[in-house]
Amino acid sequence: MTQTTTSSTERLVAGRGIGGFGERHFKYTVLAPAIFILLLIGLFPLVYSLIVSFQRVTMMSADTSFAGFANYAKLFADARLWESLLHTAIFAAIALPLELVLGLAMAQLFLERMPGRQVFVALLVLPTVISPIVAGANWRLMFDHRFGPINQVIGWFMGEPTPILWIINPLTVYPAILICEVWQWTPFMFLILLAALSNVDKSLTEAAEIDGASQWRIFTRIVLPAIWPVMAIAILIRGLDLVRLFDIVWSLTRGGPGTMTETISYYTYVQGFSQFEISYTAAMAFLVVALLTVIVTLALKRMGIAR
């Protein structure tokens, strides 16, 4: 009798578990809708792109015959594509270190408490939260060679009017975009690094001070390693944003003069929505995804972000 009770209970346990069907599957029930949407909008387009990238679809012809790697081969011969990749790399390589160093310096400046610090910090946040489109538009106004305040200020320092054609002159267009970019995102670095620095255990630096270490040594040997994990994440977030750079280029230069400031995102857009090279755009999009996937995977692995 006892024997049968036990075995039937065991079956009960194996079959239903605590709380029966409803609660057993609760964790999937609450997860499912979000995953469904992510698959629909995140994964489906990628799969679709992958398929189309092996076909010959353009605006003119819905030619879905198999093109093999023709579109991918075309990528390698497309000089404008490689230039846009180079432009993207240049923006990232200059903007990221600049934002990091400026952000760190500003964080140091505001690290010690001082009355009114909250107000300064609150004001400094503003550039980061406004739309990049608005930022680009606003800087275009600021850079205007006649009505803009930038040339005016430079003129004061030079002692004579200096009509720099910021976004038309090939020499100044990169600095113009970079200034806008660094203006908008240095506060982002600043905020994160300020928080990270504030979280550094005071006793660590004090112990080093007692041991007679110089300020510079304390900073490089103790403070930097302590904030590195946070810094790494900030670099990753900003780095990925820079690889995807699109908005401020759109509103500041439209990729010009000529194609001088086209980024990879911008060029992909042009191919897709001006030229309607559907299959070719799909291949290009895939190149971008592959590139980012490699970067993200490496970065996540190296930084151990996936707690």
Partner: peptide, 16 residues
Amino acid sequence: ILSQRMMPPIAIVFPV
């Protein structure tokens, strides 16, 4: 899921 966040909009906007 986090990596979905990192995906470039330009890569999915066309098929979408």
